[in-house]
């Protein structure tokens, strides 16, 4: 009980300390990406941050003969393409010579993607961890709309006003803040109510 509370607070502390600089850097990376005109990878934040920091030269003095990639050096990929049931292939081929913008091998079908050299080993390690987690324990990929059936039923029973928001003078302001930041009102009301009900109990305990 106490340990889980500390873990939650630690996670929130890490989140608050890391998220804001990350989002600021995301906008900077977005600008640079727009200038270069490269393809936007959906889950590519950590290598993008790294490549944003390191100034990668556009031309390589010693191109790798095995890979004839014409990718831009700022293009990065963390999540290899994973089919729902299959495990991702983890290639442990380490490069003999460390270059700026090391080509990172992905699946056999696709061409390699260049990443920051400092993050090369970390990315391979994370791929191993994810593959191991998927093989040993099945990670639930599909998202549940809610965690607890009873709370979901309680939210369905609550009175709602115009626009679908809950009728409660105190919580109405919180609900307006939550709903104002989302597009889908129906499912998000349930999600937000579940999250909001979980958070006060966490604070209490």
């Amino acid at each position: 009980m106490t340990t889980s509370t500390r873990d939650i607070s630690d996670n929130e502390a890490d989140e608050q300390q890391q998220s804001e600089p990350q989002m600021q850097h995301l906008s900077a990376n977005g600008i640079s990406h727009a200038g270069i005109g490269t393809q936007n990878v959906q889950y590519a934040t950590p290598p993008q941050l790294g490549t944003g920091h390191a100034v990668v030269p556009p031309t390589y003095p010693y191109p790798d003969p095995y890979y004839r990639s014409i990718f831009a050096p700022y293009d990065a990929q963390t999540y290899p393409p994973q089919p729902y049931g299959g495990n991702p292939m983890v290639h442990l081929q380490l490069m003999g010579i460390q270059q700026a913008g090391v080509p990172l091998p992905t699946d056999t079908v696709e061409e390699p993607v260049f990443v920051n050299a400092k993050q090369y080993h970390g990315i391979l390690r994370r791929r191993q961890s994810r593959a191991k987690a998927e093989s040993e324990k099945k990670a639930a990929r599909n998202r549940k709309p809610y965690l607890h059936e009873s709370r979901h039923l309680h939210a369905l029973r609550r009175a709602r006003g115009c626009g679908g928001r809950f009728l409660n003078s105190k919580k109405d302001e919180n609900q307006q803040d939550e709903v104002a930041s989302t597009d889908e009102s129906q499912s998000n009301i349930n999600l937000n109510s579940d999250k909001n009900e979980l958070a006060p109990s966490d604070r209490t305990s």
Partner: peptide, 27 residues
Amino acid sequence: QNAKISKEAKETMQECVSEFISFVTSE
């Protein structure tokens, strides 16, 4: 104040920050 964030954007950012934490922590 009047900006809106889609549910998909939140989910994408949720995946990104969680992976970033695991990435740094594993190092």
